[in-house]
């Protein structure tokens, strides 16, 4: 459809009164793309350490996610098992082949662990977050075999492991980290479980994606551990 492309671009140029070859315009665009300036960044994300975890938690819980803190990666399987038990959910989970998850002692629990993407038949999934953003309690997931995108959406209950070292203040901090590598096929920002208010503006959870979203934060040995 190159004819459509040429006609649309020349229409745009006619409307803007430009030829497309003007050096200052081209320089302005190149410069903007190269600088990738952050713009206005809310101050509330400018916190560190336990305060940052607390901010993340406050905003995640405000949109019906649940959050638990553990000291180390080795404590994650027990925390996941405890969560599923508390919610009366079956002791089965599906996850990708993320080496950080694979290194955790799942055998210490009674959980049946399946590995690979979901075809729609799974109740519970476990994923490892690429990052978390404290500003709005948002999880950042990237696609790939380590954490397949289907696990973010098909299972009823989604448990996400977030290493506090990957928790940043603002969205821009995530872009800075991603800019060094190839842009993943999919980056999912997830803030709370799925919902809809399309029927009479009644807010209901679990529209098409997960009905529950539980975040297990690996807070580090020095962090004060609190239960959800």
């Amino acid at each position: 459809m190159s004819s459509g492309r040429d006609e649309i671009l020349s229409n745009i140029r006619r409307s803007l009164g430009v030829s497309g070859r003007e050096a200052p315009r081209r320089a302005a665009v190149d410069e903007r793309l190269k600088r990738a300036a952050p713009g206005i960044v809310p101050q509330r994300g400018d916190v560190t350490g336990t305060e940052r975890i607390a901010l993340f938690r406050r905003y995640a819980e405000a949109v019906q996610a649940t959050v638990a803190l553990v000291a180390g990666a080795a404590d994650v399987p027990l925390a996941v098992a405890a969560y599923l038990r508390d919610q009366n959910l079956p002791a089965t989970v599906r996850m990708g082949d993320d080496p950080r998850l694979a290194a955790m002692p799942w055998q210490e629990t009674a959980l049946a662990v399946a590995v690979g993407p979901s075809a729609g038949g799974d109740l519970n999934a476990v994923s490892h977050a690429y990052a978390g953003v404290a500003e709005t309690g948002t999880l950042v997931m990237v696609s790939g075999h380590a954490n397949p995108t289907t696990l973010n959406f098909l299972p009823d209950n989604h448990v996400v492991v977030l290493d506090a070292r990957d928790l940043v203040g603002h969205y821009e901090d995530v872009w800075a980290r991603l800019r060094g590598v190839e842009m993943p096929r999919t980056v999912n920002w997830i803030t709370g479980p799925s919902r809809s208010a399309d029927i009479e503006r009644t807010l209901l959870l679990g529209a098409h994606g997960p009905r529950r979203l539980h975040v297990v934060v690996i807070a580090g040995p020095s962090a004060p551990l609190t239960s959800a």
């Binding site: 905003y59 405000a62 949109v63 709005t136 309690g137 948002t138 842009m183 096929r185 999919t186 980056v187 999912n188 920002w189 997830i190 803030t191 709370g192 479980p193 799925s194 919902r195 994606g209």
Partner: peptide, 9 residues
């Protein structure tokens, strides 16, 4: 504050 799912493809 933000929608539940923001997806970059």
């Amino acid at each position: 504050e933000i929608s539940v799912y923001t997806t970059f493809s």
